[in-house]
């Protein structure tokens, strides 16, 4: 084991980790923005609302993230219409392509988590809200969604970790995230074991810190619940 190589390349790896965090943060924000409308559409009784949401969720949960990234990055570049469009300055950047793919992917999973949570809100609470004279929108805003968010919290924490791990695929479209940086260093140093282990430790560190912070957050958000630890 050659520790010198690890130490010498640590600044580069940490720089990569910075890009990883950036990609994950943008991806999560985009995913959340997609997930809420998708989940609400998915629980609608009207078919023209739930069918598109169903198709979106089904496609992005049923195909590998790697395929999705390549579709966005290399796939869209195939069309001259896309290359000539106003969107090209964004789509030509691997950074934004990765974020678009990540947001679409995590958005689909998060929508499914939210859908489950909305359906898990006790019927009695919804009925009580209606009995109080609340409209459907009002009870959705005041009763159902706040309740659903709390139910969804643990599952969403897992989804964030999955997103963090999935972000390693950004390295396949030339981005120098933690994995991309590691692979580039290895191509020069021929020290795969050392560099990958260092990268793995940084990933584990990021997961660990996130899990601790999230646990704090969960506790805070559940402190009014009787019996919650």
């Amino acid at each position: 084991m050659n520790f010198e190589v690890i130490v010498a390349n640590l600044p580069k790896l940490l720089e990569g980790a910075g890009l990883t965090l950036e990609l994950v943060a943008f991806g999560l924000v985009g995913g959340a923005a997609l997930a809420l409308p998708a989940a609400l559409m998915r629980v609608s009784p009207r078919w023209w609302l739930w069918a598109p949401a169903f198709a979106y969720i089904f496609f992005f949960r049923g195909t590998p993230l790697l395929v999705q990234i390549f579709l966005v990055y290399y796939g869209l570049g195939q069309f001259e219409a896309v290359r000539d469009s106003v969107l090209w300055p964004i789509l030509r950047e691997p950074f934004w392509c990765a974020i678009i793919a990540f947001a679409l992917n995590t958005g689909a999973y998060t929508a499914e988590i939210l859908r489950g949570a909305i359906q898990a809100v006790p019927v009695g609470e919804v009925e009580a809200a209606t009995a109080f004279g609340m409209s459907r929108t009002l009870s959705l805003r005041r009763i159902i969604l706040p309740r659903a968010f709390r139910i969804a919290l643990p599952a969403y924490g897992n989804e964030v970790i999955l997103m963090l791990k999935g972000s390693a695929l950004a390295s396949t479209i030339t981005l120098l995230d933690l994995t991309g940086m590691a692979r580039t260093i290895i191509a020069r140093t021929y020290m795969p074991v050392e560099i990958f282990l260092a990268a793995a430790l940084i990933y584990l560190g990021m997961t660990f810190v996130f899990v601790q912070l999230y646990r704090l957050l969960e506790r805070r958000l559940s402190r009014h619940v009787v019996g919650a630890r």
Binding site: G166, S167, L169, T179, R183, F196, L197, A199, L204
Partner: peptide, 22 residues
Amino acid sequence: TVVRGLPELIVVLIIYFGASRL
């Protein structure tokens, strides 16, 4: 804990490049 905290891609790469040496 360790395996679930690592990106699957990193696991694949470590096994492929690291295992032959091990």
